[in-house]
Design a protein around this nucleic acid. Structure first.
Length: 571
RNA sequence: UGGGGCGUCGCCAAGCGGUAAGGCACGGGCCUUUGGAGCCCGCAUUCGGAGGUUCGAAUCCUCCCGCCCCAGCCA
């Protein structure tokens, strides 16, 4: 009662930052940055880094920059930078006027390189790429020094200037830092600082034909921007001594780099290289395919930025490589969608129902609640009539024990409408059930029986005469295994692509109010899941919905537990 | 048999010498006009393993085992 609330646990990075604030480091100033390379698209793994960097800055009264690490002109494009900015804004973050490019620092970097040469800390090397590799040594053997390592400073200066002037061909020379060819850390074995690339850059055009490597650029870029905490993923831990070396040689502002484990998700693949292969193999339609873990794909699928943000808050932050269960992401999604999505009725696999005792030609508007989680969402009218569609999976002629939906002779409730009793299943010449003959109880309008009798199930429905047709795309996990890389000898992650990851349903029947749905409108199709209008393929009169995520489905779990049984057709 | 990291419940993750938080998943119950939502309960005598220090160890020491990263003129 009177004991003060214990401080909620914070992650190790925030702990370091809080400590730095207390000790007054940098005068308490906090500055972070998100440093993407403008190639490829952002995915949910990047979202973790974005939420961390922008989140930390916001929490501690600091600032977060957006900086494009555009040091490799052969791989980068302006259009990717645009897509990345759009994705970050969509996620809900704002870098205001702090948009930077590593390429803005090329001139400064060049001057610093000259300084290192003057100080005898860098040299121009004529070795070829292959030779450099050979000279580097191995994990267990030290490397050998290049024969060009001890060139006089004046010669290095001259050569480096001529490299910049374009006198040499690609690959002919490089500038290397002179550190230690015997270091057990291979990054310190005279790393390359500049390579010759006669390639136009998306921002600097033809101004340069030598380009700084990432390792020579990153730390100084952070320094220039006065980044106090430079957060990056684990694989850069081995590079930290190199970044420290550069900063120390230059005697410039020294950010603190802290590494954390990047995100891995079950049933997903989070690497640019693999995403490209998925696209090129035709497994998915593109970067924004709703099955892709890219922010573009998730957005099109119907994910909300808020759900992704809370997911990033809940996965925690540590140095241990881990694989987060996709169920956690889906949980965060449902949590938000449940609160915010208007309910609507849609029948994906229609089964015709004729109510024999309902007057021909009559139709009545029934009151339906838009969102039981949000009274302010109000109600709407949905037309009811003699002929309806219900979900095929909601009827079974010979139901198993725990199935309590419709069956011959059984009474159920039609949501917001009436109690309905099945009298007969009508079959076609192939023996397939094509229609149900039913009766309703006029006393149960609205869904309650005056005599107090109960039913065990409530079904969604759509009036046949009023229904609007739609196409619905059902998505399942893109991979068939939790770890897509879990393949047989010589196999490939593409072998694990789920052949049923996309199921397209046409002739679905949705309630009439949906005719005007557009953009990326989100809905809960009652009893089925959350769906959104596909922002690229949907048209008025030719609606297309994407299933964002299913509702939790106890019945499906019961079926699965009891040995699978019938395939979950209706769900 | 070089260096750098990491090993706490099925999956994440707190914990930092005082006797294992929380979330997801899972199981059970209540409630319910969504088999949804909500509510309640359960779920690590044990922290990769083995020794040791200590009144007391997931936390300190030693050894061992396992996993990840590094030999791009990628980032």
């Amino acid at each position: 009662m009177s004991t003060p609330d214990p401080k909620p646990p914070i992650d190790f990075i925030r702990a370091i930052i809080e400590q730095d604030r207390e000790t007054g480091k940098h005068g308490g100033r906090i500055q972070t940055r998100f440093p993407p390379e403008p190639n490829g698209h952002l995915h949910i793994g990047h979202a973790k880094a974005i939420c961390l960097n922008f989140g930390v800055a916001a929490e501690y009264g600091g600032l977060c920059n957006l900086r494009f690490d555009d040091t490799n002109p052969v791989k980068e494009e302006a259009e990717h930078a645009e897509a990345i900015m759009r994705d970050i804004r969509w996620l809900g973050f704002d870098w205001e006027d702090r948009l930077h490019y590593a390429s803005d620092y090329f001139e400064q970097l060049y001057e610093w390189a000259v300084k290192l040469i003057r100080d005898g800390k860098a040299y121009v090397d004529d070795l070829s790429a292959e030779e450099i590799r050979e000279y580097r040594g191995t994990l267990t053997e030290p490397g050998r020094e290049s024969p060009f390592r001890d060139r006089p400073v004046e010669e290095n200066l001259d050569l480096f200037e001529r490299m910049r002037a374009g006198e040499f061909a690609d690959g002919e020379k490089v500038l290397r830092a002179k550190i230690d060819m015997a270091s057990p850390n291979l990054n310190l074995r005279d790393p390359v600082m500049y390579r010759i690339l006669h390639t136009a850059h998306h921002r600097t055009g033809d101004k340069w034909c030598i380009y700084p490597t990432y390792d020579w650029t990153h730390g100084q870029s952070d320094s220039i921007e006065r980044i106090t905490h430079s957060l990056c993923s684990l694989e850069f831990e081995n590079h930290r001594p190199l970044y420290d070396w550069y900063l120390d040689q230059l005697g410039i502002f020294h950010p603190r780099q802290i590494e954390f484990a990047r995100l891995h998700l079950s049933y997903m693949v989070l690497s640019k290289r693999k995403h490209i292969r998925l696209i090129e193999s035709g497994a998915v339609s593109g970067w924004d395919d709703p099955r892709m873990p890219t922010l573009a794909g998730l957005r099109r699928r119907g994910y909300t930025p808020g759900a992704i943000r809370t997911f990033c808050d809940r996965i925690g932050l540590a140095k241990r490589e881990s694989v987060v269960d996709i169920a956690l992401l889906e949980h965060c999604l449902r949590e938000e969608l449940n609160r915010t999505s208007p309910r609507v009725m849609a029948v994906l696999r229609p089964l015709r129902v004729v109510i024999e005792n309902y007057p021909d030609g009559k139709s009545e508007p029934l009151d339906c609640v838009n969102n039981p989680e949000d009274p302010s969402a109000g109600t709407r009218k949905v037309p009811f009539s003699k002929v309806l569609y219900i979900e095929r999976g909601d009827f079974m002629e010979d139901p198993p024990k725990k199935f309590f939906r419709l069956a011959p002779g059984r009474e159920v409730r039609l949501r917001y409408a009436y109690f309905l009793t099945c009298r007969e299943a009508v079959r076609d010449e192939n023996g397939e059930i094509v229609e149900l003959r039913c009766t309703y109880d006029p006393e149960t309008r609205g869904g309650d029986a005056p005599d107090g009798r109960k039913v065990k199930a409530t079904l969604h429905w759509v009036s046949a005469d009023h229904a609007v047709d739609a196409e619905v795309r059902l998505y399942n996990h893109l991979f068939v295994r939790e770890d897509p890389d879990d393949v047989a000898e010589g196999g490939d992650f593409l072998d694990n692509v789920n052949p049923d990851s996309l199921e397209v349903l046409t002739g679905c029947k949705v309630e009439p109010g949906l005719a005007s749905a557009k953009g990326s409108d989100r809905f809960q199709f009652e009893r089925l899941g959350y769906f959104c209008v596909d922002p690229v393929d949907s048209r008025p009169g030719a609606l297309v919905f994407n299933r964002t995520v299913t509702l939790r489905d106890t019945w499906a779990r019961i079926q699965k537990a009891s040995g699978g049984g019938t395939k979950t057709r209706g769900r």
